[in-house]
């Protein structure tokens, strides 16, 4: 296991003249549970889209276990399971039909698909015969995760996997991810929630304005502080302003 699971080198992406991702380089070692944190608009989703072949970078490369995502897309995509954020699913299919669809697209044999999709639906507690469009937001996240898992990828790329997921299901997903990493898989996930990354991930990168501000093992990045405080130090937290919004307190005389 000498090859790194995901290597991003000098990724650049401009949207209408403004730079969303600016020469971003990142290495995710195999077997790690890697957290990507950053404020809104930091470029997390853009970075992950370029890593998974959903968005073409203006410059730079992404390599998955030795396969260049943009030179050998088929090879790289076969090794990856992806959960994008803010994209629709084929939601006029039922949960079971969607999983079967994704499995067959991944060229799995039909009986394997049936077995695995029954497993996944059971573990995640999803209704097999209900249309995905009628799922709640949290259930939609979970069926997306199931789609990312069904072909047994070696690298999981998850964009905001815990958003809108209830605490019980969240714990379920966490234990799935931990077990997956113990079995030799690699996970990179993005999140806003520092406590979650702190407790779940072993490595992390803080990004803001399309650049990496800090990267490494969670203890090293944290440097003795809480991750929340360290994060605020890095990206520049709010200036505590007693003069600001004074009118908001004016009624409490």
């Amino acid at each position: 296991m000498t090859t790194d699971a995901l290597v991003l080198q000098g990724l650049i992406k401009d949207f209408d003249g403004s730079r969303a991702v600016d020469s971003l380089s990142l290495t995710v070692p195999s077997g790690s549970l890697f957290g990507l944190v950053g404020p809104n608009g930091a470029g997390k989703t853009t970075t992950l889209s370029m890593a998974t072949g959903l968005l073409r970078p203006d410059q730079g490369t992404a390599t998955v276990l030795g396969h260049d995502v943009w030179a050998d897309p088929a090879g790289a995509k076969a090794l990856m399971g992806v959960l994008p954020d803010g994209m629709r699913l084929f939601d006029r299919l039922s949960g079971a039909e969607l999983l079967r669809y994704v499995g067959l697209l991944r060229r799995l044999p039909a009986d394997v698909v049936a077995q695995r999709s029954a497993d996944l639906l059971g573990v995640l507690g999803l209704d097999a015969d209900k249309l995905v469009v009628d799922y709640s937001a949290g259930m939609t996240k979970k069926i997306g995760l199931a789609c990312a898992l069904i072909h047994g990828p070696r690298l999981l790329v998850l964009d905001e996997p815990f958003e809108a997921v209830d605490p019980v299901s969240g714990e379920g997903i966490r234990s799935i991810l931990r077990g997956y990493v113990q079995g030799g898989g690699t996970v990179i996930l993005s999140s806003h929630v520092m406590e979650l990354v702190e407790s779940l991930c072993d490595r992390l990168a803080v990004i803001a304005q399309g650049r990496v501000l800090a990267e490494g093992r969670v203890e090293d990045v944290r440097a003795g502080e809480s991750l929340q405080q360290r994060f605020l130090d890095l990206v520049g937290g709010p200036v505590s302003g007693s003069e600001d919004l004074a009118w908001l307190r004016s009624w409490s005389d």
Binding site: A96, L104, K130
Partner: peptide, 27 residues
């Protein structure tokens, strides 16, 4: 939202196979 269940028929898959091509056609 509604909570109706759908019945997935399999005749399309039997007709067009379970290759990616057949799966896309069925979808």
């Amino acid at each position: 939202g509604s909570s109706e269940s759908v019945h997935s028929s399999t005749w399309v898959e039997r007709l067009l196979g379970t290759s990616p091509r057949g799966a896309i056609a069925a979808r």
